[in-house]
Design a protein around this nucleic acid. Sequence first.
DNA 1: TATAATAAATGTATTTATTACATTTATATA
DNA 2: TATATAAATGTAATAAATACATTTATTATA
Lengths: 233, 233
Amino acid sequence: MDTKQLNYYAEQDKILIATDCIIFGFDNQSIKLLVFKRRIAPFAGKWSLIGSFVKKDESVKNAAKRVLTDITGLENVFMKQLKVYGSVDRDPGDRCITVGQYALIRIEDQDIELVEKHGAVWYDLDKMPDLVLDHNQLVEDALVQLRLKASYQPIGFELLPEKFTIPSLQKLYESIYQKQFDNRNFRKKIIALDILTKLEEKDKTSSKKGAYLYKFNRKKYDKLADAGINFKL
Amino acid sequence: MDTKQLNYYAEQDKILIATDCIIFGFDNQSIKLLVFKRRIAPFAGKWSLIGSFVKKDESVKNAAKRVLTDITGLENVFMKQLKVYGSVDRDPGDRCITVGQYALIRIEDQDIELVEKHGAVWYDLDKMPDLVLDHNQLVEDALVQLRLKASYQPIGFELLPEKFTIPSLQKLYESIYQKQFDNRNFRKKIIALDILTKLEEKDKTSSKKGAYLYKFNRKKYDKLADAGINFKL
DNA sequence: TATAATAAATGTATTTATTACATTTATATA
DNA sequence: TATATAAATGTAATAAATACATTTATTATA
C-alpha cells in the first residue's frame, strides 16, 4: 500500500462484480436447486445459476435480493453469503468476480408464472445439469456450507411450510445429507431441541394414519440459531 | 438479467474491490492481531487492518497473499476467506467492496524489520484499538469464524511452532475462546484426536519441571481437517 | 544438601449423549 | 372386516463429556 494521498482511490483498477444465487428449495420430498438457461454471451443458452451484476448504487446483498425477487416473486428470503470467486480468468466475458449467495425458500411460496416466465427450473441435487463457468463449484461449496450450517444451527424454518410433519422434516435432513436416518433417533433428537410445537391436526396426504403437524416455536428456534447447537445425525 | 448480447458486460458498472487481512498470530501466550496506521485518505493515521485494492490482473486470493508477504515477509501462509463487505456506503473514499480474508501465522516467523518498517503492531484481542471503516466488524466476524473452525477442524498447525507443549496448545485454545479449560480434560481430548507425536525433549522456559514437546502428525492432522471433527471444549 | 516453590502430569466416577434395534397404532380402502 | 400403509413409540448398551485433587520433576534458595 502506497503513501499517496486523496486521489489514491481514483488510480485503482475497477472490476466487474456479480452475484450468483444458489437457490435451495424444498417441496416436502427433496431439496432442489433453481437454475435457468443463461441469456447473455458467452455461453448463452447453457444452464446457469441465476445472478446479476452488482450496480454501483446497490449493496452486494441487495443485488442478490433483487435477483431473488425478480425470479421468484419472493421478498424477505433467507440468504447468506457463501464465498467470493475471484480468480482472474473465471469468466471469459471479462474480468469479473462473483459473490455466491445461497437462499433457502419454500418452493410452494414461489410465483410460478414468474419462475416459468424466466425459464427457471428446479432440479434435484442428483439430477443437476452441468452449469456454466465455475457454477458447479458454487453449488458444491453451497452444499458443504448448508450441511455445516445444519450441524450447528436448526434448519427448516425457511424451507418448510408453516405446518409440517416430523417425517417431512426428516426427509429434508436426509435430502441435505443424502443419507437415511433412523426415524426413532431422529424424532428423539429433534424433539430434544425443544423448538417444535405439536398441533392437534394431522396431515394425511402421505399415509392413512396421518402424521401430526408441528410448528416451529420461532423464539426458541431463533435463540438456538443464535446460541448454536451440536446437531450430529 | 437482460437478454442483450455480447457487449452486455461492457455496459455494466465497475467497482473498486479491496481485500483486508485479519492477521492472527500466536506467541505461545495469547493470540494477537496485526494492524497498522492507515496511510491513505480518508482516515489516514487511524488504526486499520492491512489491505490493498485488488488489481485487474490478480486474483482476490493473490491480492491478500501479496499483502501478507509485503508486510510480514511470509509466503505460503494459511489464509481463508471470511466474507465480502459490500454495502454501498461502507467507504467514504469511493464505492468499494472489500473481501475480508483471515490469516494464521506464527509470530516468531515474521520478518520483524519488515513489520516494523510498515509500522504494523500486534495487539491482544482485549486491547485492540478502534479501527477505521467497518474493520472492527471484520475482526469480530473473523473471531466468530475462527472459533467455529476450531470446533470442527483441528487448529494449531499454522499458529504454533514446529515443536510445542500441550500447555501452550491449551493457551492457544483459551486465547481463542477467551475462557479457561480444565487441563486434564483438555489433554485427554486433544490426545484422543491422535494427531500429536510426543518427543523426548522438554521445554523448560515456563516451569522447573519442564513440559514435554510435541509435534503435529501432518498426515493425520490434514486427514482430520478434511474429515471434520466435533471438538467441543 | 535439604526445603520450598512452580508448573506439568495424571485417573476416576458420574452424568449425559449416542447408537442400534422391532413392534404397535391409526386410518383408508378393498 | 381384512388388508395395507406409514406413523409413532422405548430401551438397553455403548461412548463421550464432565467434574474434580494429588503427585511429580525440577530449579532455586535457605
